[in-house]
Design a binder for these strands. Sequence first.
DNA 1: CTGTTAGCGCGTTCAT
DNA 2: ATGAACGCGCTAACAG
Lengths: 345, 345
Amino acid sequence: MTAEQQARATLADVARLAGVSAKTVSRAMSGDGSVSEVTRERVMTAAKRLRFRPNTLARNLRHGGVTNSVAFVIGDITNPFYFNVAAGIERELATKGMTMLLATTDDAPGSEAVVVDALLAQRVRALIIVPIAKDQSYLEGERQLGTPVVCVDRPAHHLVADSVVLQNRLGIEEAVRSLIAVGHRKIGFVCSPAELYTHQERLLGYRSALLEAGITDSRRYERLEPVLGATAEESVRELLALDDPPTAIIAGNNRASTAAWRELFNRSPRVAFIGFDDFEFADTLGISVVAYDPIELGREAARLVLARLDDPSGPPRQIELPTHLIRRGSGEVPPPDAPDSTIAP
Amino acid sequence: MTAEQQARATLADVARLAGVSAKTVSRAMSGDGSVSEVTRERVMTAAKRLRFRPNTLARNLRHGGVTNSVAFVIGDITNPFYFNVAAGIERELATKGMTMLLATTDDAPGSEAVVVDALLAQRVRALIIVPIAKDQSYLEGERQLGTPVVCVDRPAHHLVADSVVLQNRLGIEEAVRSLIAVGHRKIGFVCSPAELYTHQERLLGYRSALLEAGITDSRRYERLEPVLGATAEESVRELLALDDPPTAIIAGNNRASTAAWRELFNRSPRVAFIGFDDFEFADTLGISVVAYDPIELGREAARLVLARLDDPSGPPRQIELPTHLIRRGSGEVPPPDAPDSTIAP
DNA sequence: CTGTTAGCGCGTTCAT
DNA sequence: ATGAACGCGCTAACAG
């Protein structure tokens, strides 16, 4: 690493070396206007010799001061869920030559606006966020200025914006019904913090499906962690330590799923289990889950951005992506008192 | 979403409304020069009313045309390994107010230069890449222009650059020795494509550790997929179908680990197994692995970038991050013919 | 086909 | 403490 900090060549430098005007170089490089074959050659040679690299920034500044990147704002980058969504966004954007800027709020509601502001100052083309703050109205002005804002996984609060969410209720309802069909009446629900929209929805799905089956005494089986980061392992232990423990457990999100299964693994008598969000080995291990496609979640969000860039007008769009129960065995375990599981009738 | 595309306010607009010069606004906003308290107030109010947002791009253009983001170029965004590295990079950059631009080459060696060129045109501050092309000399010019280039996981070819890699050989050697200590002499090695530096290193580690123990006839137990995407499941099946099958298997990378374990799971007699790269449930399932910290890999890369931005001179730095064997049981299974495993002496 | 002028939004260098 | 002029790298709008 030598410090031979050679200066970066500009259009003007190339023009000088090629003996033409800057604009001609511009034309030659971008293939925009018409340039004679000879001069184009001359320009290209000069550019190569000077290691010229067009400055997209300056170009965009001239065009209206917007970059080519879309910002994706997430809470915790170590959560694989976000990562898969990011993968979908990146892929979809790449088809249009756009790049993804990734930023983190560390799941701190207070830092959302700060992080977003910094990104907007960098003139990102659009914003895709997993809302964590309780109020996104601070983005209203930016939206009016023409910056598309798309919310993923959770809708925005106090802001008109496109969004992509999952069919959370339906997913959990399907899981509950499936357990009931096998004979369960005592079904537990463990999940991460209750405040989040997704978890609220899933809780509502859990309750409505139970109600539907005439089960009205399940509140004691609900365990929503009060704080982010608390593990579902404890919740499961608590539930199973009850005098009248549940015979089946549903987890409401990915972290809770893995934590819960960790606790249920190797326990007997076997407690039926259905997780939320598919994961590696869930198939090999025979774990039933309410699955969905996180990559598609990202792709849809990016598509909404692209559509909005194409046509800023029109009403906000709310997309709901399907969830579906995958039966692999763990959710099909009957309760111990079921007719089929008794040794003799 | 109405189409009320109101124009974006600039420094000049704010200046006009506040009745001062543009430079005064600039001073007031950046808190740089000295501004009287009254005018500062006036400027701030005007800025708020116009929803003014300073344009970082224009500012940076004035400063030398460089953005605040560092590009991270990876092959396949769906590989959790890259994701964790990305997490480390993002976190470390965030401490300096920088953001991460994520780009993908789809593991196509030919597209690396294309993607990188586009990023450089966007004037990223630095480049962190997982090299996939056979030659990174195309970056030499850029390096001389002062753009730090850091390679992760694999060193660059034909380019002087900082890099962070793992202690690949040592990791696999430790695994092999551990298996040998339990009594294994027939040890298989399954891995993804052979061309990659990491896999070559691990293969060499495998061979040297065997040689060290006087085992010289293990070539028939080596299975390196010729193409990316081929699964290690087949390789494992092949190995176990041999007349004289191995009694232990080592996987050389994360994808191979999960695929191999999928195949070994529920098989009997139990084949000893050690994977490479830790993963969710490896602990719960009792799978021994050669582990390392992917997030730290990213953080180190980002630190190299920051150091290089701070001081471009100095020799290239090569950092090797440690790997270590985590014994959880699967790697401690003795061979069927071992004295301890026989029922009676 | 090519060059000139002007200006994108901001900061620097002088002035005042 | 504040302002005017100029320039960062590039391109639109006009020449010629």
